[in-house]
Each structure stands twice: as C-alpha cells, then as structure tokens.
Design a protein around this nucleic acid. Structure first.
Lengths: 241, 241
DNA sequence: AATGTTTGTTCCGTGACACGGAACGACGCA
DNA sequence: TGCGTCGTTCCGTGTCACGGAACAAACATT
C-alpha cells in the first residue's frame, strides 16, 4: 500500500500536476477506486492538494519536508554565497547540481529578470551527458561510472546533444585536464553553458555552471568566474560539510 | 498504514535527522518492529536514507518531489529576480515567506558569505507574530484571522517577542498604514528585520523581508528597497501567476 | 571478565482493513 | 434521448499489516 501511494505521488513528476483522477489512474496503472481512496488519504496528510475541486497536485507539506533533506540542504546552504558571487559577476543564469545515479539533479538555480526558459528546474533531473553540470560531474566521478554511461545509448535532448560515445569521451578528457566542462545547445537550443566541478575529499560532489544565450557566450570571461566559484566552494567544504 | 508512514516522515521535522530506530519509535509513539518495517519500506522508496548504517534521515527523493510543488515553485520562481535585486541593494539576508495556517513558511532565503545564524530555514515555519514576514502577512490577511491570532496566547521566541495582544494590534495597524512591518529581536536576539507584503488580487499572498544585525540596522535605507522589491513582485503577479 | 542494558532485527499467528469489481448518479456532448 | 466518461460509494473477500515475543549484538557499568 505504501508502494501504491508512492506510485501516485511519483506520477506527478516532473510537472507537479495538476491531474484529474482518471489521469492519475492511467499514469499509475492503478484501479480508479484505489487511486480515489489513496489520493483522499494523501490530501488529508497534506502531501497532495485539490484544485478547483476536481484536480490533484503536489501539496505544500511535501515542499516543507523536501526542504529539510539534510544531504541537499547543507550543500545548498554552503554553496549559496558562491552562487551569488557568480551571478553578480556574470549576471547570467547560475546552476548548482549533483549526481544521482546516471542523472544530474539541480539543487539551485539563480537568475535575474530575463530568465532563460530552461528545463533545469530545481529538483528536476536531466541526463549527465547532455548538460554542463553533468559533464563536469561525470569527468571526475571515477572510471567505472564513465564507462557505464558510455556503454549505454546516449540520450539526447536536442539535435546538438552528443550521441557519439567517442566524442563524449574526448570531451570528458578535455574536462579532466582543464577542470572545465562546456556544453553548447545540447540541452536547450540556443543556450550554451560552462561548468566546473566542486570537490570534497577528492570526489566531485557537485558542479556549478553558468548558462548563457548562445549569442553572448564568451567563455574566456565566464571560465574564470565559474572556476573561482567552484574552487571557493570546494575550499569551504574541505572544512567539513 | 499510510498514517503511520507519514507520522514517521513528519517526525523528522524540523531537523531532517538523522535519528536512530529507537529515537524514531519514541518520537512517533509507534512500536519498534513497526517503525523498523515501515522505515525499511521508506528507504526502499528513497524517502528516507540510512547514514553510517544505523541512522535514518530524510531522503533525496523527497527533495526532488518537494521542489515540484506548484504552489511553492511558481511563487518562488517569480520572486527570485526581485529577491536578487533586494540582496544586491542591501547585501543583507533576504527572505520570502507565505502564510500557512497561523504560521509563516519560508520559501527562500538569500544571503552572502557572512550568513546570520537564523531559524528561518527554507521550509521551516515560525509563528506569525514573531517575524517580520509574519507581521506583514498578518496585517493584510483579513480581520477574522487577525482576531484569531490575537485571541490565542502569543508564542514567543525571545525575550523581545510581543506577547501583549494590544501591542501587536497596534503594530499591525501601523503596518496597515505604512505598508511596512518591523521586527526587533523578536525572533532572534541581536537581529532586526523589516518586511513588506506582496499582493496578488487584493490579498497578501507573500511577504519579503530583510534581516540585519541590530548593530547596523538602518530602517531609512532598507525600507525603500524592501518596498520596491515587494511592489515589483506584486506587479509581476498581477500578470497572473 | 562478568553482568546488565539497550540496541537493531527476525519470526509468526492473528485480525483488521486494504482491495477493486460493480453499481451509482452527475455531467458533457452529439 | 442516448451514450460516454466522470467522480464517488458500497461491500464481500482475502491479504498483508500488525506488534508481542524472542533473539543476538553492541555497549555500558561494575
């Protein structure tokens, strides 16, 4: 029964809803009365909410609980000042992401009034190979993981996404040398990105990136800023997270 | 059974853990074998995690789900640029909060390297009457709610917290006139705060505040910045959130 | 070393309650 | 008026959640 409830809640990814009862039944594959009963329980617990009387969406209690997750909260808290610095220096969209399995999960995204339309929402996950943050993490996460990613078919989000393992391997090697990962229109058309890994105890535990409209992408000016932020956070984490 | 699982998860508030099995059994009032079984299920679902083999804490999946909650995500996303402006203008700790029942829940907190030690973590809730954000919300949330708060005994976080209903009522009236709420060491000793409500369709849906060490609290300089941010966000929300 | 205490874990018989097919009324549409 | 789909309720069946009891391991105390 817990599994069924979790199935319902997870079926709200990645949009958060709202969905109708029949939609939920279809998305989860559960019988309609079962969804009805469990959804009512979840609403009572505050994990789901009802909108306009007929639709369900994720509830506020879930936000409050999710914000407390120590492994996320502590890293985000430590990183925020450095992300602020990076944003002020570049005035472009700044990301903080970590690896979760074979995907990158975004912990924070900072932007100004001219926000880019990006799929990298907080809590959202994207393939490692398609994003700057992902490539920075992948390049410093050990050989076995790299090989696992290279062995599988590479997912693609745009026509520019790297689908050739050889090219990805070469890009990762460059990143290992330079400490910087580049991404050009591989996640979103028209948007380029430069990222740097954050280290804590030898392992890359996170990565910081700046996403920029392709038209004004100036790597020579962004690279030092991104690297500075990542190194600063790494030094802070060495003091124990 | 869902209730028991929710009880376990909620028992991690407000710290997020980690807790041992016996602690969880005590916090929830559930028998030890029951907690053991349910916690194992929750770990399997990613809602809890095990640290050092013997302790439980909130899990990463919960963070990802919580970040998707539409009611929170949309407001946070819309507010972020204005919070950035406010932070850059003041270089002090900036808050965004909403009302949830008789408490304020913080949706965002932005700070620099010299972060204040505050209880106002994201997702955390505090009494309306003890915080700047809370007073700004309370002053523009309708009479019946104000009276309900004034009727109950006022909670206090510090020796400076307002516990006299008459004084709180007077403070709220001043806020209704000026559009600004003040708080001095009522939530944290040594920290003052100034806040302004955010309107959408006549109701105050949120509030923005700046928290400052008492020593350098200059209301005359902070007030215009906070008001500007709140009004800017209000105008943006009028375009439909 | 010996003892007592608390821990996390496993087992299993019992019974409560989750389950979902079937049926219902309400609504939108043609 | 008839049809399809919606959300909701009912209820008999069978399952699986439940937690007391027992266990071994780790720790604390003497």
């Amino acid at each position: 029964m817990l599994d069924k409830a979790a199935l319902i809640v997870e079926s709200f990814r990645p949009t958060g809803g709202p969905y109708r009862l029949a939609e939920l039944a279809q998305r989860t594959g559960l019988p309609k009365p079962t969804v009805h009963r469990l959804a009512a329980d979840l609403v009572r617990l505050g994990w789901l909410e009802r909108t306009d009387g007929a639709r369900y969406r994720l509830g506020g209690r879930l936000f409050e609980l999710g914000s407390l997750v120590p492994r996320r909260r502590d890293l985000r808290e430590a990183a925020l000042p450095f992300l602020q610095d990076l944003f002020e220096a570049t005035r472009e969209t700044v990301h903080l992401g970590v690896r979760e399995g074979l995907e990158v999960v975004y912990l924070e995204r900072i932007h100004g009034h001219d926000a880019l339309q990006l799929p990298s929402h907080i809590g959202h996950s994207l393939p490692l190979s398609c994003t700057g943050v992902g490539k920075a993490l992948l390049a410093f996460c050990g050989t076995e993981l790299t090989e696992e990613v290279l062995a599988r078919p590479l997912p693609s989000l745009t026509a520019h996404s790297l689908t050739d393992p050889a090219r990805l391997r070469m890009a990762l090697e460059k990143t290992q040398v330079s400490g910087l990962a580049y991404e050009e229109q591989e996640a979103v058309p028209g948007v380029s990105c430069i990222a740097a890994p954050v280290f804590a105890g030898g392992d890359a535990v996170a990565a910081i990136s700046v996403a920029v409209p392709r038209a004004r992408f100036r790597p020579a000016q962004l690279a030092p800023a991104v690297r500075t932020a990542a190194l600063g956070l790494s030094r802070m984490l060495r003091g124990g997270i």
